[in-house]
Design a binder for these strands. Sequence first.
DNA 1: AAATAGTTTATAATGATTCTAAAGTAATAG
DNA 2: CTATTACTTTAGAATCATTATAAACTATTT
Lengths: 138, 138
Amino acid sequence: MNLKNKITNKLQSSKLRPTKQRKKIAEFLFNREKTFHFTAEELNKIINKKDSSEKISLATIYNTIDAFKKAGHLKEILTNNNKSFYDTNVSSHHHFFDIETNELEDINYNDIKVVNLPHAPKGKKIQDVEVTLTVKKS
Amino acid sequence: MNLKNKITNKLQSSKLRPTKQRKKIAEFLFNREKTFHFTAEELNKIINKKDSSEKISLATIYNTIDAFKKAGHLKEILTNNNKSFYDTNVSSHHHFFDIETNELEDINYNDIKVVNLPHAPKGKKIQDVEVTLTVKKS
DNA sequence: AAATAGTTTATAATGATTCTAAAGTAATAG
DNA sequence: CTATTACTTTAGAATCATTATAAACTATTT
Ligand SMILES: [Mn+2]
Ligand SMILES: [Mn+2]
Ligand SMILES: [Zn+2]
Ligand SMILES: [Zn+2]
């Protein structure tokens, strides 16, 4: 199956209509080897670079990120920044976070071991375990 | 030494003039046993409750949080929320973060062990190690 | 082909935070 | 002390990220 069909399938099986806009964004986000970390504004800039024949509105960028997140294709990341960061790697994994440049870098889940996990507060359950290694210029 | 003097000292030794506003905020934030996690808006509401004889402007709330953070008396916390959270516990420690209610709860540093820390990317050094256990209603 | 349900868009609205510049206060110098 | 200086507070405006609105558009179903 070719890329276009794969993307269309992915959208349809998430009950998202494969519109021109969603296909373009999905193709950009999900057709890659390495994890991509981004903000809505960054994605907007990249998708709507000069050449791009047809522009996608900022509202659609936000809507699409939200739809992809709800469908489980994107994950929101914890940072101390006041804009939201998203991650194309939706499996459990860890990060380096450069507090000076706001850059994120993946750490494989198995490269860090977290032992002695405490119990969740009563009435709650643990949903995810994230380790963030805050880094800065040395 | 009494509380007022302790607070004044803390401010002066951080090169912050002990103004009425800073003393009131510092007394509220730092005179407690348990860690306090808050946003600027929450702190503003609490400090400026009905009775409070003299109001402190929202700008000053923001300025003061910033000054205290720079002085190392407050720490900013990583969340996926688009408002900043601050922590009166400035030592290294971990958190439960309820993604439904945005509530934070401390986990003692020694209650979790993180083993096999990877090296920081070249040119960078690890500044902090934070584990966040995302939780939700079970 | 028509009806429908869902989507995109420009634009307005909101919410959090930062900026501005004038008035006020703490620290310092005389 | 008193005057000078440096820093701080404040109301309000400005900015930035995000969400809401509602009309035009498009994919899907009938
Ligand atoms: Mn954040
Ligand atoms: Mn955040
Ligand atoms: Zn990642
Ligand atoms: Zn804490």
